[in-house]
Nucleic acid binder design. Structure first.
Length: 254
DNA sequence: AAGGTGGACAACCGCCTAAAG
DNA sequence: TCTTTAGGCGGTTGTCCACCT
């Protein structure tokens, strides 16, 4: 573990990188490639710790980094991803080509968090019913014999900036075999991130209920769903719909 | 012009995890 | 199986700069 601070008395530089240091690092990595960060400073002739070199390269020097203003589309995506993933900046950055986790984290902390806070995320409850009360959207029946397909109700969502939630009504297992992954794969394919799979398989209550929240990568399709979408997040369980303004709300009301 | 303030962002720090020995 | 190491991650801090008084 590299627990020592970078400047541990070895005369290493700290603070802003100079143009010369940048040049040395770029030319070294261009020749030798990334990795073995601990040995990089010595090999490249830089008085920095390896960790500092790695960070400088990843966040600033490496090719294909997109610099400059974050577009509205990127901003919208960051907001939606943050709602889905929380402060997992590296994952969020992975969906924004050319952007670094550090940049997105900074942008969130300085700009977007305030923006999102000031937006009115309050949602109106359906027919003024209390949270957790039955208010079931129309839906189809579930096949009970073959591999089930997605029985999809309308995607439920809070705002335009939010991703749609899909309450799925599917058997959790067939002949004792868990079908979850297969069903997700059939219906969403590779568009669902591995991380989402882990975190979204939250409800599996023996009553043909499974809740999954999906994220469109196809923006047009997302927009189409958005236009027809409801104004609420919710999950279906035993013919009851549970609503909330966030995942946490929903699960508390559940 | 000088000092204060806040925003933006680069860089650091400490913790965590996976891989290697 | 345990320990060590390297790299990755998110929170936090430091610094620069524009703007305001």
């Amino acid at each position: 573990m590299e627990k020592k601070p970078c400047n541990n008395g070895d005369g290493l530089n700290k603070g802003a990188w100079t143009a010369l240091e940048d040049k040395l690092l770029v030319s070294y990595i261009t020749a030798a490639g990334e990795g073995k960060w601990r040995s990089v400073p010595k090999q490249a002739g830089i008085k920095r710790c390896g960790k500092s070199c790695r960070l400088r390269w990843l966040n600033y020097l490496r090719p294909n980094i997109k610099r400059g203003n974050i577009s509205e589309e990127e901003e919208d995506l960051i907001i939606r991803l943050h709602k889905l993933l929380g402060n997992r900046w590296a994952l969020i950055a992975g969906r924004l080509p050319g952007r670094t986790d550090n940049e997105i984290k900074n942008y969130w902390n300085t700009t977007l968090s305030k923006k999102v806070r000031t937006q009115n995320f309050a949602i109106n409850k359906p027919n003024n019913k209390p949270w957790g009360h039955n208010s079931k959207p129309q839906q189809n029946a579930t096949s009970s014999t073959s591999i089930p397909t997605l029985i999809q109700t309308k995607p439920l969502r809070c705002t335009k900036a939010s991703h749609p939630y899909f309450p799925l009504q599917i058997p959790s297992s067939i002949d004792g075999v868990d079908q979850t992954q297969q069903i997700i794969q059939q219906n969403f394919g590779d568009e669902i991130m591995e991380e989402e799979k882990k975190e979204s398989a939250m409800v599996n209550n023996n009553d043909l209920l499974f809740f999954y929240d999906a994220m469109w990568t196809d923006e047009l399709e997302f927009e189409n769903w958005s236009k027809g979408g409801d104004d609420y997040d919710g999950i279906l369980c035993n013919d009851d719909w549970f609503y909330g303004s966030s995942d946490t709300d929903i699960w508390q009301n559940f």
